[in-house]
Design a binder for these strands. Structure first.
Length: 441
DNA sequence: CTAGCCTTGACG
DNA sequence: CGTCAAGGCTAG
């Protein structure tokens, strides 16, 4: 501390020391002819090297580089010593010659290493940032429900609409009763539920089908499109799923980040979602993340070949088993996909409705307005029922409804299974957005 | 590694 | 709304 005159603590100078000199200097510098010099930038000098400084960093006025240098080095115990006498002069030119003396000078002028955020604080900070990001994404969109469709993200429109359906079944709206070439039997059965698998098994009598009201019809369609263009579309990163890009659960989680973004996009399109308070929006979103991923995986599941459909073709599900090593969980996951996909086929409206019902879960973690959530959920349950009646006839709708709701209930169990796995993951290796959204703090 | 530039949350 | 002071990112 050769000269204590130039270094003051932030508190000291901020309150009682106007220190007008800086202004004078600023003006003197540019003179009367000052071109709108940005601010009255006073020329502070770095206490370490004399370079230009913007303000305090870790309790001393320093330049950006010494700030970064200090942040990088102050906490690690060094074995490196000065090659000379330990009193090297440090200026903007020589500052990088001797890290030891530079760091020593940092401490000498009063920089405090305890102002560097530790792992815990840093993590907390990142979480806050991530949370705000989500909040912003969800909130910011005064735009109306459906005038942002232009684009979602071009891959969605490029890949999503057309070829997604190609392999197993081509169909999407309306009578999704398309047909999996499967089947020798007219009915598929699981868990005591019998539903016809082939459209030819459905009643031919028109009056056996519900006529959706106009509102219902548009809502169903919108939901289908919303799902298709967001969660239900494939994205390039699923190409990353190819080879053995998935070595660990971590990779799996991090690669799922795109899917989370899609989920946000999806809910942003729902006007009902906006009826929720901001907290409940976040809560219900978080609560639905894992389920979304599962639903999504089911929609890309190809029953006939036990594989996933990706932008790069099909990938056998065994690669996931290998990646995670959680065989048991994996098996139940696949079993789930099989069952769900068999019922829902490639009907985006169905997947969309299912997702909505999962999202508006009055029983979800941390939700405040259970009532509202429940009301909205009911609305979509009814819509789902009606939709099923319009597609599968009154005769079979009930079976489908039971089957689907049952599957949605199972979703919880499987999600929880995955959640347990997630708890074993090292938070430091996970992207902040996923950390936040999965509650892995 | 460095160092410059950028994004953020807290604070007044 | 502007300033301050953290961390992050990334050419070089």
């Amino acid at each position: 501390m050769a000269d204590d005159s130039d270094v003051e603590t932030p508190s000291e100078c901020s309150m009682d020391n106007p220190n007008g000199s800086s202004y004078e200097l600023a003006y003197q510098d540019d003179g009367p002819s000052c071109r709108k010099r940005m601010k009255l930038k006073d020329d502070k000098l770095c206490g370490v090297c004399g370079d230009k400084a913007l303000g305090y960093n870790f309790n001393a006025i320093t330049c950006e580089s010494c700030k970064a240098f200090f942040r990088r080095n102050a906490l690690k115990d060094k074995k490196v010593k000065c090659l000379f006498q330990g009193d090297c002069a440090i200026d903007v030119r020589t500052r990088r010659f001797c890290p030891y003396c530079r760091l020593k000078k940092c401490f000498d002028i009063g920089m405090k290493s305890d102002m560097i955020l530790d792992d815990k604080e840093r993590k907390a900070r990142m979480e806050k940032v991530a949370e705000n990001r989500i909040k912003r994404q969800v909130t910011q969109q005064h735009t109306i429900v459906k005038d942002e469709p232009i684009d979602p993200d071009f891959e969605a429109s490029a890949v999503g609409s057309s070829n997604i359906y190609s392999p197993p079944t081509p169909s999407m709206e309306g009578p999704s009763s398309s047909d999996i070439p499967c089947s020798k039997s007219e009915y598929i059965t699981f868990d005591k539920i019998n539903v016809p698998v082939d459209s030819s098994d459905l009643p031919s009598d028109e009056t056996m089908y519900r006529q959706l009201s106009e509102n219902e019809q548009t809502l169903v369609t919108e939901v289908g499109i919303a799902y298709q263009t967001t969660v239900g579309s494939m994205h390039n990163s699923s190409a990353a799923l190819q080879e053995d890009n998935y070595h660990s659960v971590n990779d799996l989680i991090n690669h799922s980040e795109v899917a989370v973004r899609r989920l946000i996009k999806f809910v942003k399109r729902l006007e009902d979602f906006r009826r929720l308070s901001q907290e409940d929006q976040i809560s219900s979103l978080k609560g639905a993340v894992l389920s979304t991923l599962l639903l999504r995986s089911a929609s890309f599941y190809i029953v006939e070949r036990d594989s996933w459909l990706t932008t790069k073709g099909e990938v056998s599900t065994v690669i996931l088993k290998k990646a995670t090593g959680f065989v048991e969980l994996h098996d139940s996951h696949i079993k789930y996909c099989r069952a769900l996909k068999t019922i829902m086929k490639n009907d985006f409206s169905l997947f969309g409705l299912a997702l909505i019902i999962v999202i508006f879960n009055p029983d979800g973690p941390n939700v405040k307005d259970h009532q509202l959530l429940s009301d909205i959920q009911d609305k979509y349950l009814v819509l789902l029922k009606h939709y099923l009646e319009s597609v599968f006839s009154f005769t079979y709708a009930k079976e489908y409804l039971v089957a689907i709701t049952q599957k949605l209930n199972e979703l919880k169990g499987i999600s929880d299974g995955h959640a347990k796995v997630l708890l074993q993951v090292n938070p430091l290796e996970i992207e902040p957005l996923m950390l936040e959204v999965l509650n892995l703090k």
